[in-house]
Design a protein around this nucleic acid. Sequence first.
RNA 1: UCCCCGGUAGCUCAAUAGGCAGAGCGGUUGGCUGUUAACCAAUAGGUUGGCGGUUCGAGUCCGUCCCGGGGAGCCA
Length: 430
Amino acid sequence: MTWVYIEDIGKHEDEDVEIRGWVYNKRSGGKIRFILVRDGTGILQATVFSADDQNPLFLKFDELTQESSLIVRGRVREDKRAPGGYELSLQDIEIIQVAKDYPIALKEHTTPFLMEHRHLWLRSRKQHAVLQVRTEVIRAIRNFFDDRGFRLMDTPILTPSACEGTTTLFETKYFDQMAYLSQSGQLYNEATAAAFGKVYCFGPAFRAEKSKTRRHLIEFWMVEPEVAFATLEDTIELGQDLILFIIERVLKNRRADLEELERDPKPLEAVSRPFPRITYDEIVPRLQAKGSPIQYGDDFGAPEEGLISEMSSSPVCITHFPAAIKAFYMQPDKDRPDLALGVDFMAPESYGEIIGGGQRIHDLELLERRIREHNLPREAYAWYIDLRKYGTFPHSGFGLGVERTVSWMCGIKHIRETIPFPRLLYRIYP
RNA sequence: UCCCCGGUAGCUCAAUAGGCAGAGCGGUUGGCUGUUAACCAAUAGGUUGGCGGUUCGAGUCCGUCCCGGGGAGCCA
């Protein structure tokens, strides 16, 4: 008998098939028994009907508990009463293990309880749908860059010093010296961009910040493209194309998961090019007019991000920030050297910043001055400075946060559900 | 790090003004021919987060610690 996956069940109508999986739930009604079987790709209702309550299949059914593992065999039939439209008329139940006291019931639980059982919570429908969207988003990102001729360059996770020198770093021992977990692959990618032209890295980033909000993870995934000779304008276009491509893929391939999540697709369908662009100089008075206490020179807080996201149904691109509030490597505007050629993409529906990037300094002397001004250890940046010595080149790039993007796609408020095992302040188990 | 909130049965919660510790779900047993988190009946299940204090009496009031949740700052 052929082993098939539930997501393909429609192709096997009226055939005898085998499903290998787990009991999602079961019900009985006199002479009929229902098992909802889960195999990782979907849930299928399997039925047994018999007038004999000593029927061997009934006896096996009675042993089954939630999340017991089993193999079921039977005939696939279309039936409107079954969830999903198909069901399996059971011929055989092979029990692998009867699970005892599965902790997660099919009802409401609190988040702390579910997080404590994250390894099992992943099996539930909603979590399954979110992570299906995550894999789609990641696949879309890889396809997008691969199809445009970008080279994947894996940057190191163990680094000898701070990439940006600002945020708190996780320290670890590296034999007889110290090492730090990477916060970003960007600086290394500026080197690979000089070798390959257009590159991207895609990996985890670590921030030892004591952040405790729905938008922060201690360990998160980020994709960072870097393009030699690209300007700020080029990088905005690239970010816009990437976001539109991700949305298109999610809407095309993960409709059923969005439905499971009760995510209204309309706000995603409404995203269109060009994304509105506004400079920092222009946005500050507009925020003040809407009641924000922001002063010129301040960075945006959560309330400001909310106000910005209400301005458009597409992400809003904020550019030309005061150099003082941005990273040391940001290229200044040639007419207004107090402004940095950076861009932040603010997602609609209050999902906040999903992309941060811009043009990097390529002038050797300016970079050396910025390193001094930020009190960064010159020796650690010697290789980075070399990039400006040996054929320097204007270049730009950005970082897109995977989990923030997935939360936005799914319409869920807390980022912790968008990664299989979130690392949070006060939570590193399981 | 700061502000706010919470911790009672395996889970989700209730318990008047300080006065006998409760319900639903899950478990177990029985019933039901189409269930959709099925339903009906019965049944078992408790060191009220820890320590200390006030009181004749504390789940309830006070102190302290632990654990968690929400928000801020910072950022993807």
